[in-house]
Each structure stands twice: as structure tokens, then as C-alpha cells.
């Protein structure tokens, strides 16, 4: 059994916590976000016959009032960049966060998660931007924390990437 620390990164209200709360095991209350700035949860992913425990450090969303604590990133084997597909600026924010994270963590696997796919009418992020990021080696997943669409795949992909790195 392998454990990995991964961070959930993204702008405020992109649905990181929703992704986490519905699909992971959680013992700490939401209060930790606003007090400590992070909440640690667990996601068990099956990799063939093996199992990987992802310790999710759900960092409090970055906004004008609260800067991300980079010390929380330390030791992460990967991270998930969460974007709200109905708000284009969150993608920009994700790019900024990715840069900052890379500075702190060096190159570790990550996946881009375009959340709220269920709100297709309000979708703002255009495919060309994603394609552009794909060319830079980014892997993107369209997810819905509401319906559960794509969530498992995103976690699995990240786990695979990390397993590939360690293998």
C-alpha cells in the first residue's frame, strides 16, 4: 500500500471542497479550512491490484484575502488544479497557482479539473484554451461534483501519474 500526499488547489468557490466531500473519506469538519487553512482527507484509489491512499490536503481557496500557504505544499507527490468551468478567471488563477506550485515543489504530477460540467449552459472555458494547455503537457478532466461525472477518473489519472513517477 502506497500513500501519497496531494494538494487540492484552485481559486475560491471552484468546488474543491465539494469534490472532496462527496468522494473521499473525511473526519475533519469544514471549519479547518477557515481556521488552519487546510483540511486533510483521504481518497483510496485502486491501481490494478494495488491500492493507493491519497492524503488530500484541501487548501483553502486563494483569493484576495487569504494567500495560499506554500508550506502546505511541501512533500506533495502531486496536486489537483481545480477550475470552475463557468468562470474563466478561475482558469487563469489555476495557471498562476501551477507556476507558484512548481516553484515550491519542482515538477510533480498534476491534473487539471474543470469542475461544474453540469452547468453546461453557463460554461465559459473554451476548448481552445484547454488544448493550448494540453500542448504544455497538462491533462484536463471535466468533472461535476454534483453528478460525480469524471471525478473518479481525475483522481485515478493523478494516482497513475504518481505511480508512474515512482515506478
Amino acid at each position: 500500500m502506497i500513500q501519497k500526499k496531494i494538494c487540492m488547489l484552485g481559486a475560491s468557490a471552484v468546488g474543491k471542497t465539494s469534490l472532496v466531500s462527496r468522494f473521499v473519506r473525511s473526519i475533519f469538519s469544514e471549519k479547518y479550512h477557515t481556521t488552519v487553512g487546510v483540511k486533510v482527507d483521504k481518497k483510496v484509489v485502486a491501481l490494478g491490484e494495488d491500492q493507493m491512499d491519497l492524503l488530500l490536503w484541501d487548501l483553502y481557496g486563494e483569493d484576495e484575502f487569504q494567500k495560499m500557504r506554500t508550506s502546505y505544499l511541501r512533500g506533495s507527490s502531486g496536486y489537483m488544479l481545480v477550475v470552475d468551468g463557468t468562470r474563466h478567471e478561475t482558469l487563469e488563477k489555476a495557471v498562476v497557482l501551477q507556476n507558484r506550485t512548481e516553484e515550491t515543489l519542482a515538477k510533480v504530477p498534476f491534473v487539471l479539473v474543470l469542475n461544474k460540467i453540469d452547468l453546461v449552459d453557463k460554461w465559459e472555458v473554451d476548448d481552445s484554451a484547454i488544448e493550448e494547455l494540453g500542448k504544455r503537457g497538462w491533462t484536463a478532466f471535466r468533472t461535476s461534483a454534483k453528478t460525480g461525472e469524471g471525478v473518479e477518473q481525475a483522481f485515478l489519472a493523478l494516482a497513475r501519474k504518481m505511480a508512474g513517477v515512482t515506478a
Partner: peptide, 8 residues
Amino acid sequence: DADMIAGM
């Protein structure tokens, strides 16, 4: 949940 506690 020792692993989560350790993380926290």
C-alpha cells in the same frame, strides 16, 4: 484514520 490525523 491515523493517516489523516497525521496529515492534519
